[in-house]
């Protein structure tokens, strides 16, 4: 069954006189528990695509469904709530909160977004930290961790709320080859373990190989 349904979607950026068609009439669907990547040259629309699926942006035209929800009609507040409840995010530059420890970073969505009780929180955080293999590093602050370790914590933070779908825009671009492949494999293992759908974008052929479904974008069109 399709988790994500993109229906004839266009996203046009208007800067002054100039119009940029970042996405043009794209239609596609992504299955539940899929491990999908978007690839393509720079400026082809990968980030735009992930932002639309991730409810960070609205299409200029077309419809976006996630599960049963038509998310392109959501307002700002609804999008924020939906992101918090259903989606997880992994970023290129890790974007961990500097003032929080690894443990607290993973705990953050449970406290600040989901309002879960302390005992439940602890169980979930420890479990996901163990899954990403970072249990022994849990009390370190982000700047005491390597890039690969930071991204593992970010994966844990994205997964701790048990989202249906995790989006990752170039999650390996700031990592060396070995760590990059390791992080992607970790993500795939997590998919296996939690049945979470993963959608990521990449430039890296070595990373691409790890994906199960590859969508290629060129000039805002699927090829």
């Amino acid at each position: 069954m399709a988790l994500v349904q993109i229906d004839n979607v266009s996203r046009i950026y208007q800067t002054g006189e100039v119009q940029v068609k970042a996405l043009q009439d794209v239609t596609l669907s992504i299955d539940e528990a899929a491990f999908v990547t978007f690839v393509g040259p720079s400026g082809s629309g990968k980030t735009t695509m992930l932002n639309l699926i991730g409810c960070l942006d609205k299409p200029t035209k077309g419809k976006v469904f996630i599960g049963k929800e038509q998310v392109d009609t959501f307002d700002r507040r609804q999008r924020a709530a939906f992101r918090g409840s259903t989606l997880g995010f992994i970023f290129q530059a890790f974007n961990l909160f500097q003032v929080l420890t690894a443990y607290e970073n993973v705990e953050y969505p449970l406290v600040m977004i989901k309002n879960e009780s302390i005992s439940k929180r602890k169980e979930k955080v420890l479990k996901v930290l163990e899954s990403v293999g970072m249990l022994d590093q849990k009390d370190k602050f982000p700047d005491q961790l390597s890039g690969g370790q930071k991204q593992r914590i970010a994966v844990a933070r994205a997964l701790v709320t048990q989202p249906k779908l995790v989006l990752a825009d170039e999650p390996t671009a700031n990592l060396d080859k070995k760590s990059a492949v390791n992080v992607i494999r970790l993500m795939r293992n997590m998919r296996d373990e939690f049945k979470t759908t993963f959608i990521f974008s990449t430039h890296d052929p070595g990373v691409m190989k790890e994906a199960e479904v590859i969508h290629t974008l060129e000039d805002g069109k699927l090829v």
């Binding site: 700002r76 924020a80 939906f82 992101r83 918090g84 995010f89 909160f97 500097q98 953050y108 600040m112």
Partner: peptide, 16 residues
């Protein structure tokens, strides 16, 4: 700014 963007992206309510 980027930290605020991260908080917002992962679903922190504007009020929070």
């Amino acid at each position: 700014v980027r930290e605020i963007g991260t908080m917002s992206a992962i679903g922190t309510a504007p009020g929070k």
